[in-house]
Design a protein around this nucleic acid. Structure first.
Lengths: 243, 243
DNA sequence: CGACAGATTGACTGGGTTCAACTTAAGTGG
DNA sequence: CCACTTAAGTTGAACCCAGTCAATCTGTCG
């Protein structure tokens, strides 16, 4: 029953895993720690201490500017972990904080290194996941730089839907999105006011529906077009498209 | 005389290298190929074939949207290479093209893997360089999402100045920047018209000077403030600050 | 009930885009 | 050597998308 382990599901969506690999992953993720909402796991300027792995809940990477502005530079959904090689860095160049309460596993650098050295199939899977993270950051750059405001939000909704579905945290056409409009604004480079209006526009176009936390995608095809969403950057083995 | 080998200079700016390491790097980079300006090294959708390393000139990563818009998602200055693990990917999720004529080395995946497996110090350096690339993409996201237009351009100028200086391609306060205003616009998420006006504003404030390709930074301190530039994300060993 | 975070709405403003003309610089070929 | 072409840079004017400011509403929790 590895079906509910998000790390296993995620890695399995990127490449083939052997039974032994899955067992090892189960072991590593056996004892998560509960972290409340809105707590920093690690802060810019801190010395990194290994890899964080989110098993449940939602966390984000972010940076703050001197003027107080915040930019979210990535989300960690269940199964996601922060860079494999952080141990090489002296200092973190960004912060990671929880959005909701999370169950988090902290994996010491030595353990990570051990896996990378002795389990080539897993190493491959983990490296692949790291590549997808980097590709996702680049895709976000495209969003903020060149997509319209509607497109940015639409793109984010499409991406999170696929990512959550891959780890069994989303239904076919709906999911729980515990982000505030402030979070969305800090992610897409907009203001909260405009996020509010843009979401309404998406609703009025009949593309999405749902008050507050619950999102239902009413017209995925149209949403993809509006978002210019091309899921290739997620590098899923089975296309990762619509069910 | 490894002083002019940009890869060696770059890696040395990130971590300690032994003489043997440098010799190996010299070997690998001994036979670059000349690529004309404005040619794609590899295109989104292609199968990756190993790692590209830029020895001279300027190249960029970019993505195109269906509407024709382009977003530049990273520059490759001398010494930079594209992701170590691309071989794991089935398809490229973005393109890499030259801006100017470049001297480029193509390193087969097996060679890369050999180094990663058998030369731990080099592996460390290369991994570190890859982390810096990822951090740079995140910093760009902050720029486009939360910096003013003046700030974005200022930040880019600061970053490129440091990166070029690290590989001996920039003087203390000036450098050649072979980017058109179109390139700058596609990098910073602006229009060319506004890039033009914003550059003028930077000139009029006395922060930079220089027509066309040649940039001179007149007031680095002020430029850093305007850009909210914090070079920590480049993870240089010796602070990487002003000479 | 009061307090607070988050969402919503309206009115106003302005930064940045759009469109279009014009200039400058750098080839290229006759 | 110069007319012609093309890419890049510059400027002006009109417009509008999105930000700003501020008030109001909603829901939740103690």
């Amino acid at each position: 029953m590895s079906d509910h382990n998000p790390l296993i599901r995620k890695l399995a969506s990127l490449t083939q895993l052997a039974e032994g690999d899955k067992r090892l992953l189960e072991e590593i993720t056996a004892h998560p720690v509960v972290v409340p909402a809105k707590k920093d796991l690690i802060r810019e300027g801190d010395a990194p201490l290994g890899v964080f792995l989110v098993m449940d809940g939602l966390a984000c990477r972010y940076k703050l500017l001197p003027n107080g502005a915040r930019q979210v530079i990535g989300y960690l959904v269940p199964g996601d972990f922060c860079d494999l090689d952080v141990a090489l860095l002296e200092l973190m160049d960004h912060s990671i904080g929880t959005i909701t309460q999370c169950r988090v596993v902290h994996i010491p650098s030595e353990t990570v290194q051990g896996i990378l050295d002795n389990h080539p199939r897993l190493a491959r899977a983990l490296r692949l996941a790291a590549l997808v993270d980097a590709a996702t950051a680049r895709e976000w750059l495209v969003s903020v730089g060149r997509r319209t405001c509607e497109g940015r939000l639409a793109h984010l909704l499409c991406e999170l839907h696929l990512r959550l579905r891959a780890v069994g945290r989303a239904a076919c056409d709906s999911y729980e999105l515990p982000l505030t409009q402030v979070d969305l604004a800090d992610t897409t480079g907009m203001t909260t006011v405009h996020v509010n209006r843009t979401l309404r526009a998406l609703r009025e176009r009949g593309l999405i529906e749902g008050k507050g936390r619950h999102i239902r995608i009413r017209d995925a095809a149209e949403l993809w077009v509006l978002a210019a969403f091309n899921p290739g950057y997620l590098h899923r083995v089975q296309a990762g498209g619509q069910r």
